[in-house]
Nucleic acid binder design. Structure first.
Length: 959
RNA sequence: GCGCCGGUAGCUCAGUUGGUUAGAGCGUACGACUGAUAAUCGUAAGGUCGGAGGUUCAAAUCCUCCUCGGCGCACCA
């Protein structure tokens, strides 16, 4: 130091703040070290041990999918969970957090399939057990990776012993849950059209479909009435379809209740063709008015007349004859005329050919009419060929399935068209190129194919699962409350739960089904199944002969073993059973389920139905939903927009505590945004709070509890700060309790910035630095600061677990005995006596007056009259009697951080500084008179010469 | 398309049962300090509360419509 200014002579006599706690966090480097330390000390075990006997609080983890690195959404989710768990733990609960993973399902199958293909093996050539082994290994790998990624975020929990849906014991538990549904008679075999690839002989998910142009043969087909309504005698209803091969499966025709139809008579057909049109003069056809011209053009009709209106109501309830009636001595059944919202008059005829085994809308129209599931035929087999339920067409293929021509049209369409022609049912034919679904693997077209499926009956009304579930929703608390409506709306309208999947990686549907399609329900059999799965996982079901399960009581040849697996939603719906219920360190039901709002459709609902079906209530007492992470413009993140931010980018650049502040300061119940500006405000907020704590640590350098002063002996300012601390502590903890973290963070950071850094610390600097150590005011300040530090480090700990630990590490020894980690502490119990509303009200007003003074100083500063506030003397003139009374006992030089102050007679000169929001207060700032004390830098008349000591400093230094 | 949710200063958020000139923190600008110093302090500027109607003496707050965005809508976790 080449400083030769004499005023520095006194610097050593000051009590300047000192701490090893660095100003900058260096979080990306430091956090991993702290994590390692927690690991080494076995923090999780200590937390459990510590909390033994306390009231449990259970946040049950909704399992993330064990595939791929974390994205910000999962990071957000886990961070909120950790905030909840940590705040409950510190509030005095035993808040044990057991993380879990969802391991089964399609995305992993895809990845593993891909890996096999890379090695030149097709999925169908890999034995299922080997395939499942690979899936298991794949999931295990990602669980390990994700576990480390979650821990890096500072998420505390039982990472050594999480739950996994693929553990054998868990798979057995899921099987047991499913069989409970079966035993209650809630499981039935139904039927439903799904997207099926005949080439690969597998069901496909929407995501496995791509759309390509495909040329289809189109046909217009006439359906005569069984008993024509009055005025429609001899008329045919006409449909149009792009899939002639679905005609044998036709069971209904749909009409639109809002459409206009007419009865038309053909008068002439074109004679300029080298073939005879199918239509003949005298044919009577019912068509949508908007489409009759198109139909007649296709049918080569050259003249027609419209005979009458046909009201949709005339069609209701009528029956039609099948256009193939009599073919192969079959198709004699009646075809239903049904109303359908999906029917339009934009293309076709205004009537929709309805084959409930080949289309979603067809299927629902069928069910909506109350028609029976078992009347839906299985006309097409897995290989895309007709079954014997399509008489006369058995074995004909829709698409070719092998050789180079796989995916090309088979012989089904020509045969059907031929038969229709023979029966006089064809009105016209044509070709159409249109977008059609294809398998993304084989590129071959797919078809909707009806397949047997397993359902859990949600049902309707009295005693139904739906009714129980709706009741359970009313008994659940929702954060935000709108979640209740959303979940209720979904449960009210949802269909029965389709739980079967024609896939490989999952928990088997462990049912034996008899010839009638009824599942076998026998507890002894079920017990053997559950035990086998517990020993050997899913393979035990597929690999064990039926006899071994059925024992002596049943004839294995009479039963078929179901080959499907369970919907993974059923797996996750069971987490409460195999985790909450099964573990001694958790309780059932959970206090809270906390997931993204998409889980109303997913986990909240599957858990609800599972819990209600097996145990009569929801497995949770409350449900909390958070929104999704958007980019800084509020758009969703996507690779194509290039706006994806990964959690690792944030932890590597800023640190996990910053990410956590971002979460804690956002309204997580809505969608939240992330971007550079948003993160940098988290960084700024962090810096402010960190420095406030650092100042407390440094000001408490060498602190000894013996210097503490009791609150009653403290100056008013100290008591005011204690009041504020009590208030803030309560507000922060209330926010935690309500899962309203942003309110907590706001209260805490604004207290640190406004009340402490900008006000209290600033005012007390002089006292802290210059007064003698035994000075009561100084001791009071340090007593309050110790309390501030103790309380604030605890309130900060859930939000910034790393930084709070680092602060705690740097606590001056004199603060007393320490625990091994800040996270083993509970929130401070501050004495109620800190509260003093009257005092607080006074000080709110005093701070209002102070604002006028700082404003006035600023004005002088801008006029270059003064530089630092210690250059100034405050002249305060107060009109308002009440304010004047308040102000008169205060040391305004100290409060305003000026060298001198005087309370002058009101009113002040017009030139005095005033603020509109502080009427009755005027301030005149002048230069302080006297010389500058070389130690405390105040300018006082008592200082004999520039740089000498003032009286206080003389005493403090013992000079 | 349908169901649900949301749109308050550049950013993150407050705005109680509709009631005086819509608040805070951060950021920004300018200034101060140089004994919290890649820190700290002060002052100031920033909003037709998504838009349009309506109810009312009075609307960010209640109603309707529109717009923008999000989530969900069955082999996707």
């Amino acid at each position: 130091m080449a400083d030769d200014q004499p005023k520095n002579d006194y610097k050593d006599t000051l009590f300047l703040p000192a701490t090893e706690f660095p100003m900058r966090g260096g979080l990306p480097k430091k956090e991993p070290q702290i994590l390692k330390r927690w690991d080494e000390m076995g923090l999780y075990g200590k937390l459990r041990e510590d909390a033994k006997g306390r009231t449990p609080y259970v946040l049950h983890d909704g399992p993330p999918y064990a595939n791929g690195h974390l994205h910000l959404g999962t990071a957000l989710n886990k961070t909120i969970k950790d905030l909840i768990v940590r705040t409950r733990q510190m509030a005095g609960f035993d808040a044990n957090y057991v993380p879990g993973w969802d391991c089964h399902g399609l995305p992993i199958e895809w990845k593993v399939e891909e890996a096999f293909r890379g090695k030149g093996r097709k999925k169908e050539d890999v034995p299922p057990s080997e395939f499942r082994t690979e899936c298991r290994a794949y999931a295990a790998k990602w669980i390990d990776i994700q576990r480390e990624e979650f821990r890096r975020l500072g998420v505390e929990g039982d990472w050594q012993n999480p739950y996994k849906t693929m553990d054998f014991g868990t798979e057995a538990a899921i099987v047991a849950e499913f069989l409970t549904f079966a035993e209650k008679g809630l499981v039935y075999r139904g039927s439903k059209p799904i997207m099926w690839s005949p080439v690969e002989q597998t069901a496909l998910a929407e995501a496995e479909i791509e759309y390509h142009d495909h040329q289809s043969t189109t046909i217009w087909v006439r359906f005569p009435f069984v008993d024509a309504p009055a005025g429609l005698e001899g008329a045919d209803v006409v449909i149009w379809t792009t899939t002639p091969w679905t005609i044998p499966a036709n069971r209904a025709v749909c009409y639109g209740e809002g459409l206009g139809y007419g009865l038309y008579e053909v008068e002439s057909v074109r004679d300029d063709l080298d073939f005879a049109p199918f239509a003949k003069p005298g044919d009577r056809l019912i068509l949508a008015d908007a489409l009759h011209e198109d139909v007649f053009a296709a049918a080569f009709v050259s003249g027609f007349k419209r005979l009458s209106d046909v009201a949709p109501s005339q069609l209701a309830g009528t029956k039609l004859k099948h256009p193939l009636a009599g073919h192969a001595d079959a198709y004699g059944f009646e075809v239903h005329m049904l109303p359908g919202d999906h029917v339009t008059d934009e293309a076709g005829t205004g009537f929709v050919h309805t084959a409930p085994s080949h289309g979603q809308e067809d299927y629902f129209a069928w069910l909506a009419a109350g028609l029976p599931l078992d009347a839906i035929p299985y006309t097409v087999g897995p290989d895309g060929a007709y079954t014997d339920e399509a008489p006369g067409f058995e074995g004909r293929k829709i698409f070719r399935t092998d050789g180079k021509k796989a995916g090309k049209d088979g012989d089904a369409n020509p045969e059907v068209i031929k038969a229709l022609t023979e029966h006089g049912s064809l009105l016209a034919r044509g070709r159409l190129t249109h977008s059609y679904p294809h398998s993304w693997r084989s590129k071959a077209p797919v078809l909707f194919r009806n397949t047997p499926q397993w359902f859990i009956r949600v049902g309707e009304g009295e005693g139904s699962l739906r009714e129980v579930a709706l009741g359970a929703i009313e008994d659940t608390e929702f954060y935000p409350p709108s979640g209740r409506n959303r979940l209720r709306g979904m449960v009210e309208t949802r269909p029965d739960w389709l739980v079967s999947r024609q896939r490989a990686w999952g928990v088997p549907i462990t049912l034996f089904v008899d010839a009638k399609g009824e599942p076998l329900v026998d507890q002894a059999v079920n017990k053997r199944i559950i035990e086998a799965v517990r020993e050997g996982g899913a393979d035990a079901w597929f690999g064990t002969p039926a006899e071994d399960f059925l024992g002596g009581s049943y004839d294995a040849s009479q039963y078929e073993k179901v080959n499907d697996i369970l919907d993974v939603w059923f797996d996750s719906g069971c987490t409460h059973a195999f985790t909450l219920e099964a573990r001694d360190d958790l309780t059932w039901p959970a206090d809270l389920y906390m997931e993204g709002s998409d889980q109303h459709r997913g986990w909240f609902q599957s858990s609800l139905l599972e819990g209600c079906g097996t145990r009569g209530r929801a497995p949770y007492k409350a449900v909390f939903t958070h929104g999704f992470v958007m980019d800084d413009k509020g758009r969703k993140m996507s690779k194509s927009l290039g706006n994806v931010v990964g959690p690792d980018e944030i932890t590597n650049k800023y640190g996990a505590d910053i990410l956590r502040i971002w979460v804690a300061s956002s309204d997580v119940q809505e969608d939240i945004r992330v971007g550079d500006e948003i993160l940098s405000s988290a960084v700024d907020a962090y810096r402010k709070v960190r420095n406030t704590l650092r100042y407390l640590l440094s000001a408490l350098d060498g602190y000894d509890a013996k210097e503490a002063v009791s609150a009653s002996e403290m100056p008013e300012l100290e008591r005011y700060i204690l009041h504020r601390l009590h208030e803030v502590d309560a507000r922060v903890r209330k926010g935690f309790e309500d899962y309203n973290f942003k309110a907590s963070w706001r209260a805490l950071s604004e207290f640190a910035i406004q009340d402490l850094s900008a006000f209290y610390f600033d005012v007390r600097k002089d006292c802290l630095y210059c007064d003698a150590p035994d000075n009561v005011k100084r001791r009071s300040t340090r007593t309050v600061m110790a309390q501030l530090l103790e309380t604030m480090v605890r309130l900060l700990a859930p939000v910034c677990p790393f930084t709070a630990e680092e602060v705690y590490d740097h606590f001056p020894e004199g603060l007393g005995e320490r625990k091994p980690s800040v996270h083993l502490l509970q929130f401070s119990e501050l004495p109620e006596s800190y509260r003093d509303e009257a005092l607080a009200e006074r000080w709110t007003k005093l701070r209002g007056i102070r604002r006028v003074v700082t404003g006035a100083i600023e004005e002088r500063r801008n006029e270059k009259e003064i530089r630092g506030s210690l250059d100034a003397a405050t002249g305060l003139y107060i009109d308002d009697a009440e304010l004047a009374e308040l102000a008169k006992d205060q040391d305004w030089a100290e409060l305003a951080i000026t060298s001198q102050a005087m309370l002058g007679p009101s009113p002040a000169a017009d030139s005095a500084f005033r603020l509109a929001e502080q009427p009755g207060v005027a301030v005149i700032i002048s230069r302080a008179e006297g010389d500058k004390c070389g130690r405390c830098w105040r300018i006082l008349p008592e200082v004999p010469e520039e740089g000498a000591l003032c009286l206080r400093c003389k005493e403090a230094t013992g000079a």
